[in-house]
Design a protein around this nucleic acid. Structure first.
Lengths: 97, 97
DNA sequence: TTTATAGTTGACAGGATGGCCAAATAAGAA
DNA sequence: TTCTTATTTGGCCATCCTGTCAACTATAAA
């Protein structure tokens, strides 16, 4: 039997990832460190919006940042989040049948 | 490079799972078929609330139902969603370090 | 046919999310 | 110091999510 609190934690983690832009951010960061500006170019939305998505991911311990001059670089703190992509792909495939 | 639409689909799927009650439902259904009433007893909330969570999961092709008399039984349609539990546990563990 | 049981659906309220703009901050360059 | 670039934060609004109650539907039993 699994503890209710565990489900709560897992739900919070899933919620943090359950957004198109945040998934795209995680995918990018899984390849290499990126600045906020680079991520905005990819997502094509307001810089402040990207910054807030990153703040949320950081609050959940998924990413971390470091400043280099005026630029802030983000990196993946828990690379295994990428396994979610594998899971999701698998479910979508299984569902399609 | 991954298609933007793929991220959209994955995000929708994650959103469907990103709720404590729905995770608990999926976990229960991974063990055996359950009626709405049984799930309500486990979740301890309004029957209509459970019914809506189930409707949402069904709309995403994650569960399916069958009626037996006045009772409706739900079952997991894509058992591989359980891999999300493994992923989530792994991330929470990696994050804890 | 009436009654009881099991679920679903609609309406509604409160709270959480997401996105943009504008203002604030941080750091380097002039 | 002042200016510029990069990013964060606060305010605001629109939208979505959750949960509850009440009303409705479906099926079986009396």
């Amino acid at each position: 039997m699994v503890d209710r609190k565990t489900f709560t934690k897992q739900a919070k983690m899933l919620k943090a990832l359950a957004h198109e832009s945040r998934l795209m951010i995680v995918d990018s960061l899984s390849r290499r460190e990126c600045s906020v500006g680079e991520l905005r170019d990819m997502l094509d939305c307001d810089l402040s919006t990207v910054s807030k998505h990153l703040a949320l991911l950081r609050a959940h311990g998924i990413v971390d940042d470091r400043r280099e001059g005026t630029t802030v670089f983000y990196r993946l703190l828990t690379p295994c989040v990428c396994n979610f992509f594998i899971c999701a792909t698998q479910v979508l495939k299984e569902r399609a049948r």
